[in-house]
Design a protein around this nucleic acid. Structure first.
Lengths: 244, 244
DNA sequence: GCTCATTATTGACGTCGATCAATGCGCGGT
DNA sequence: ACCGCGCATTGATCGACGTCAATAATGAGC
């Protein structure tokens, strides 16, 4: 397989939104059959992105949103003076690209952390359709709003939490998102490096490593490289709060 | 005047959106006269909020967005364990409440830092109207997207910058926003306390105070309590980057 | 105009996380 | 299957920011 991301045009073999098992995650519920058909047409293409490759880069013209079908991504902002900040990790069913609407250009890099596949959602078609289907419009507004709320909770994390608290919060968040996708809450593989975790949490990679070792020493979990086994999820949640 | 925020119903004396001097800031350009008339009807009421009083509180049902006509606000998230994080400072022409759309409840407190007045924009009416006027729809999407981008740049600040860099970035940002409202870029009054600045920047109030003193010692600006006079705006911008 | 609580400044000291460094290991790629 | 580099772990030291504390200045409210 080529390592260059190539747009794949729609073909019969692909799963339509109406039959997609991620439907509850990225599409509104309560659409009529007729409306669902129109949403099916909205998703024009699929696109595979190999591990390490960008889905889009900051500065590229914004045209589409992307819904993750399979795989795992990170989004990353690079400032003028070269500082890098991972702004999020995205998994199946989540939407990427919302930050490009405002300026017409993508504001961050989106890069696959494992071989992935996304649905391409042309934004102007989404706009048109959401003018006609108010359930879709409202759903889209909710998704954007939730992204704002998510960002605010990251601000809270970065602004007020200690290193170990940030790590606990990060792992609990991952755990919950895996659960809602039908995976184990207590065992999963990290797709990102310690450095990427550190960038997201405002820490250096050594601090991330030390923090994980510490949580292991405390018996809350086991770490073996990228594999995480949470033994005491409740205590891990408590570790998000001060002095525990 | 009562110190309790009371909804004020619309009356003839009020400035319509079509005649509002903040129009370029909160409304789309390029509407037809007819469309502008309909937008005028969208803003049902004005509301005065006295200094220190909440415009809304986290947990309250979300029904409307608010556009600031005059005054100054802060938004603040309080976590379950009692931690407080100022997520932003808002001034005239800026929109508040977007974070409430996702859950139907406000996600943060919005509090006036000085006596203020806002336009109340019922969200369901905005939704309806934006289904009919696509310029309005697109403008609204842009505003939400820009909020996401703004939050991401705060994440960058909190995740990668040193105390003095954060302060410089904060002041430069304020400066730019004052300029675009026709005020001086180099002299303005802070409406918030050192503690509120600290909460926003992920610092303690003493560190904020020390940082301001340091920028003053370096000759970049003068501080006298809430009054800021920037002497070397260019150098202040440079102070946002490392090793300067 | 006065008063007092709030806000701001500054100093001394402690601590958490960054930095520098060395070693080991795992896994992706051929 | 093997190779080699990227990734992870751990230790020692340093420094930036937090904490604690004392004082000063401001301005909001009476």
């Amino acid at each position: 397989m080529s390592s260059v991301p190539i747009p794949i045009t729609s073909h019969g073999l692909q799963v339509a939104c109406s039959a997609c098992n991620l439907r509850e995650l990225c599409m509104p519920v309560g659409l009529s059959d007729q409306e669902i058909e129109r949403v099916d047409e909205l998703v024009g293409a699929r696109r595979k992105v190999a591990r390490g490759m960008p889905l889009y880069l900051a500065g590229e013209p914004f045209q589409s949103l992307f819904a993750i079908r399979t795989g795992f991504f990170k989004t990353e902002v690079v400032s003028e003076d070269g500082r890098e900040q991972v702004t999020g990790f995205q998994m199946a069913g989540e939407l990427m690209g919302l930050d490009g609407i405002g300026t017409g250009q993508h504001n961050c890099d989106a890069r696959a952390l494992e071989d992935s596949e996304v649905c391409v959602i042309p934004f102007n078609r989404l706009s048109e359709l959401s003018r006609e289907i108010d359930t879709l419009q409202h759903h889209f507004h909710k998704v954007m709003s939730r992204e704002i709320v998510r960002d605010q909770s990251v601000m809270m994390l970065l602004g007020t939490m200690r290193a170990e608290e940030r790590l606990a919060a990060f792992l609990v968040n991952l755990s919950q998102r895996f659960v809602s996708r039908g995976y184990s809450a207590t065992e999963f593989n990290l797709r990102m490096t310690r450095e990427e975790i550190g960038s997201y949490l405002g820490l250096k990679l050594e601090t991330v490593s030390r923090g994980l070792s510490r949580l292991q020493d405390e018996g809350l979990l086991s770490v073996s490289n990228k594999n995480i086994r949470i033994h005491k999820l409740d205590d891990l949640k408590k570790a998000m709060s001060p002095r525990c």
